[in-house]
């Protein structure tokens, strides 16, 4: 599962041109320069990477921290088994 979290952080860094080292779990997306529009692109890349589908209720666009993103994706990947 830490593997999933690391890959999600790689995608955040890649898609948003964010500093990978700054993406700690408690880092706020806003503070590392990731906007809600960036997250649309991130969710697309995550869906492609993990072969999952992120529904309306799985992760809201007003999510605040990096840790909340990775936790949501870990849940979805686990559920997809």
């Amino acid at each position: 599962m830490t593997d999933v979290a690391d890959r999600v952080k790689d995608i955040l860094a890649e898609e948003c041109e964010a500093d990978r080292a700054a993406l700690s779990d408690d880092a706020r997306l806003e503070d590392v320069g990731i906007s809600s529009v960036d997250m649309v692109q991130v969710m697309f890349a995550i869906e492609e990477e993990f072969g999952i589908s992120i529904g309306e209720n799985d992760m809201s666009l007003d999510i605040e921290t990096v840790g909340e993103v990775t936790a949501a994706i870990q849940r979805l990947v686990a559920a997809a088994g």
Binding site: V40, Q41, M43, F44, E47, S53
Partner: peptide
């Protein structure tokens, strides 16, 4: 390709 999603932008 039978994909269910297109690029979000």
């Amino acid at each position: 390709d039978g994909q269910q999603r297109v690029h979000p932008f």
